[in-house]
Nucleic acid binder design. Structure first.
Lengths: 144, 144
DNA sequence: AATTTATGTCAGCCATGTTGACATATATGC
DNA sequence: GCATATATGTCAACATGGCTGACATAAATT
């Protein structure tokens, strides 16, 4: 139980330091991450993943767009949508953050061994609410 | 990677709702949890676990003490220390929150099976920074 | 007696969540 | 084609829970 807390705490620790150099926070990290993994995602889909209000997202996203980490462009099928995508600058930063966490995970994986990793995934997948918003974009936005 | 985010997000979701009924937040939950699991813990040890400043803790802890969820009393060996302990009221609330999360975990465990659970623990234990502050109070506080 | 340690407190700042109200552009339904 | 719904944005105000800095007190330690 508390392991989840410690894991999360230390998992975000290093990235937080890196982000601080750029005057960004954890919230910006999450946006970078999910936009990076879901190019051309629209705002609504992103809101559903993060489960925050559009006003909260707006502040964070606006900053990322303003500083050139993310670009927006209208959807082709639905021009009301603003589809989000990392710029090269955004990709770079995201990679830097990602690598850091990956290193930590890799260490844990190495220590624990492959079968443990398998179980880890298994359980972790089952913790969130039912269908989960992970890689199930089938229901929403096939944008652009 | 994102699984950790989703797991954490949904893991804290229900408890957050319950806490809101009492006008408390997630920070209070963490304190209740760790005090519950480490009766007679002193303030410094708690700060080391949470990795926050004493001013932050003070606000949260002060509230919990004020509303009778936690009691403090001076350490016997070192009377400067304030040892923390849940009251019956605190135990009740903590149980309620705990059970909720346990239910969620139990579901995941059941779905994933025992060997997966084993691996889950294995990996999760290895994610945090080295010695980890879990059950390793050997270096600090042997109070009261 | 001097210093260090454990704890508390005041005051203010910042990031990031919230609600509510309202605006605009586009898509959709009748 | 107009009415309405949807996708998004924006303004304003507020709450929580981090943070820093400064200072206070009691008890332990040297």
């Amino acid at each position: 139980m508390e392991l989840l807390f410690f894991a999360y705490r230390d998992f975000t620790g290093r990235p937080d330091e890196i982000l601080a150099e750029f005057g960004l926070g954890r919230a910006h990290h999450r946006v970078l991450y999910f936009v990076g993994r879901n190019p051309q995602i629209n705002v609504n889909a992103l809101l559903n993943i993060l489960r925050i209000t559009k006003q909260s997202l707006s502040r964070v996203l606006g900053r990322l767009v303003g500083q050139g980490y993310i670009i927006q462009h209208p959807g082709k099928k639905d021009r009301r949508q603003r589809l989000l995508e990392l710029t090269e600058k955004g990709v770079n930063l995201e990679h830097r953050l990602f690598n850091n966490q990956q290193t930590r995970l890799a260490r844990a994986y190495r220590l624990a061994g492959p079968s443990a990793v398998e179980g880890f995934w298994q359980v972790l997948t089952d913790i969130p609410d039912r269908p989960s918003s992970v890689k199930k974009p089938s229901e929403k936005q096939e944008e652009s």
